[in-house]
C-alpha cells in the first residue's frame, strides 16, 4: 500500500521533470523583436549569401567571405549589414538564455545556433566548416 504511494510520487516527479525539459522558451517580446528585425534584413542578406560574398561562420555569426564579389562602393553598406545582423544574432542568443532563466546557457545556445544555421543553409550558400569555407 505504502509502496504503491511511493511509486506514484516517484512517477509524478519523473513526468514533471521530463515535461519541464520539452521546450525552450522563445516567446519573449525581446526575442520576437530580434526575429522581426532579422527577418526583414534577410531580404538584403539572402542575395549576398547566394553570391558567396557573405557566409555562415562557425561561431554563429555571418562574415564577409569574398569582398571582391561586392562592388567597392557597396562594401561599406554590406559591412554595416553584417555588423547589424551579428549584433542581433548575439542579442538573440543572450535573450534566449535569459528567457529561460539560465543566462549561463548563452554560449551553448550560440553553439547550437551556429550548427543549425550551417545545417539549414541553402544550396549554393557558403558555410564555415573546420576553419575553411565550403559551398553547400
Amino acid at each position: 500500500m505504502n509502496i504503491k504511494r511511493w511509486i506514484a510520487v516517484l512517477l509524478l516527479a519523473f513526468s514533471s521533470a521530463l515535461a519541464a525539459q520539452g521546450n525552450l522558451e522563445i516567446d519573449s517580446p525581446a526575442i520576437a523583436a530580434l526575429k522581426g528585425a532579422m527577418q526583414q534584413r534577410h531580404a538584403r542578406l539572402a542575395p549576398l549569401y547566394a553570391a558567396g560574398a557573405v557566409g555562415q561562420a562557425a561561431d554563429g555569426t555571418i562574415a564577409l567571405r569574398d569582398a571582391s564579389s561586392v562592388p567597392l562602393a557597396q562594401r561599406g553598406q554590406v559591412n554595416s549589414l553584417i555588423a547589424a545582423e551579428n549584433a542581433d544574432r548575439l542579442a538573440l542568443y543572450r535573450e534566449i538564455a535569459r528567457a529561460n532563466d539560465h543566462p549561463e546557457w548563452e554560449a551553448d545556445v550560440r553553439r547550437t545556433f551556429a550548427q543549425r544555421w550551417i545545417d539549414r543553409a541553402q544550396p549554393g550558400w557558403w558555410v564555415q566548416r573546420g576553419g575553411s569555407w565550403v559551398r553547400k
Binding site: M38, T112, Q122
Partner: peptide, 22 residues
C-alpha cells in the same frame, strides 16, 4: 539534469527561429 543545457530542446528552438528568419 535541469541545470544542464537541454541540447535537443535548443536545437528545436533554433530550427523554429531559423525557419522564421529565413
Amino acid at each position: 539534469i535541469n541545470i544542464y543545457f537541454p541540447a535537443a530542446a535548443a536545437e528545436k528552438a533554433a530550427d523554429r527561429i531559423i525557419e522564421e528568419v529565413w
